[in-house]
Nucleic acid binder design. Structure first.
Length: 421
RNA sequence: GUGGGUGUAGCUCAGUUGGUAGAGCACCGGGUUGUGGCCCCGGUUGUCGUGGGUUCAAGUCCCAUCACUCACCCCA
């Protein structure tokens, strides 16, 4: 038997309907706010990600699926979507005609991590990106969209955590202050933190090791070191969120793993998935367009972890399946032939109908109708084809299923109840 | 990359100090029935994850390996 690759998974019928539901809710919401779908390739030149995400991130250093194609060029399965969307924005010169562009995209990403709950090597994200809008309104809108999306999916325990990472003007001052603080407490930190303190001291802030948390409790907060512009931006975001009635928490430990983030960052966590608690996250990346070769352009976006979101929504145990409206239990060769014709006609009329393609016992066919959760069952023998035709006309002409037509059709539940439980 | 747990039928699992592989559900056929639920009878399904080793004998003990899973790490 050939098995699928470690960390990859099948999304089977039954689960797919839930994914479709989530997608439909997301698409409708984004469309209502003027976000347009963009579909970008799954494979890009490696340099797009190494430059966009950051050479020294874990993603680029050890998690990307990178390989040479036949001509020897090094290409990579996309580990995230933002870099590709920004690349498309630059390549198609959106900045020239109208720099303000709002996109969304939904699709698979690839990272070679060790699989665990809510984490796969091929995972799906819902991405929203807004380019060319520097004003804090858009930060607020994205957080609002995220909260609304989760709300419409009945995800309740989701509060946005927000922070500001500052900008290239003010972050160096904070970084210095943080480094000084960390260096004074080197021996209190775990080995991971001592290692990463040099390269990315901000990551020490969100280390989960108790000793580190303790040692970092009094660490300087980025929000105390923001320049005037960044401070004003962050204050406006907070004011507008409050004005919209969105509950949020300022989390000064909130830093993000990708190098391109600036100013506003946000995450949404949930307790439903154990350690993989982040279900969505995003932030502003005002330098990224320029870094990838475009003109200086503001940018902000978020990603929703689709797999995790689907697992959370699945906990609600709602039924998104679309069972057949009718099951035709045909007894005898003539009835089978007629039933096949009816299934075709009703299917073309938009009414999903199931049947056994084999002339099996009524018991076997009824079991299958039950398993498929068919709304109605038509039992028809070789001598009852005329009644079946009448049934067909009724169903094809309107939504109403005539119950009890010639005694042939009844809902399963009615029949079972009549049989006396 | 590191650590823990788990691998036996389609599913959930049992399997004693090592002695020829089991149950329930599901599936298929039949009986009963107002041709169906319930009930009754019968039947199919396994390279016991894989490969080695110990042994007269391994699902069981040992080693390796793979997969799944949870956590670390990282991230959404």
């Amino acid at each position: 038997m050939i098995q699928l690759i470690r960390g990859f998974k099948d999304i089977l019928p039954g689960e797919v309907e839930l994914w479709q539901h989530i997608e439909a809710v997301a698409r409708a919401l984004f469309a209502d706010f003027g976000y347009r779908e963009i579909r970008v390739p799954l494979v890009e030149k490696t340099v797009l990600f190494s430059r966009g995400i950051g050479e020294e991130t874990d993603i680029v250093e050890k998690e990307m699926y990178t390989f040479p194609d036949r001509q020897g060029e090094t290409i990579t399965l996309r580990p995230e979507a933002t870099a590709s969307v920004v690349r498309a924005y630059i390549q198609h010169k959106y900045y020239a005609a109208d720099p303000m562009q709002k996109f969304f995209t939904i699709g698979p990403m690839f990272r070679r991590e060790r699989p665990q709950k809510g984490r796969y090597r091929q995972f799906y994200q819902i991405n929203v990106e807004a380019l060319g809008i520097a004003e804090p309104f858009i930060d607020v809108q994205l957080i609002h969209l995220l909260v609304t999306l989760l709300g419409r999916l009945d995800v309740t325990d989701a509060t946005p955590h927000i922070n500001s990472l500052g900008c290239p003007q003010c972050r160096p001052f904070f970084r210095d202050a943080l480094l000084a603080y960390i260096e004074a407490r080197q021996d209190l930190l775990c080995s991971d933190c001592r290692r990463r303190s040099r390269r990315n001291p901000m990551r020490v802030l969100d280390c989960k090791v108790p000793g580190c948390r303790e040692a970092m409790a009094g660490a300087p907060a980025i929000t105390d070191h923001l320049c005037d512009d960044c401070r004003a931006h962050f204050d406006t975001v907070r004011d507008r969120l409050a004005a919209m009635g969105i509950d949020y928490e300022v989390d000064k430990r909130l830093v993000r793993g990708l190098d391109y983030y600036t100013r506003t960052t946000f995450e949404i966590h949930t307790a439903a998935l154990g350690a993989q608690s982040a279900v969505a996250g995003g932030g502003r990346y005002d330098g990224l367009v320029e870094m990838l070769g475009g003109p200086p352009t503001a940018g902000i976006g978020f990603a929703v972890g689709f797999d995790r979101l689907a697992e959370i929504v699945a906990l609600q145990q709602k039924d998104y399946s679309r069972p057949p409206r009718l099951f035709i239990a045909a007894l005898g060769p003539a009835a089978q032939t007629a039933a096949f014709g009816w299934q075709t006609a009703l299917g073309l009329a938009g009414i999903p109908v199931e049947m056994d393609y084999a002339d099996r016992s009524l018991k076997a066919q009824m079991r299958r109708a039950d398993r498929l959760n068919a709304a109605n069952v038509l039992i028809v023998g070789d001598n009852e084809l005329a009644a079946g035709e009448a049934m067909l006309r009724h169903m094809a002409s309107g939504d109403q299923v005539p119950v009890g037509l010639a005694g042939l059709v009844e809902t399963l539940k009615t029949r079972l109840a009549a049989a006396g439980g």
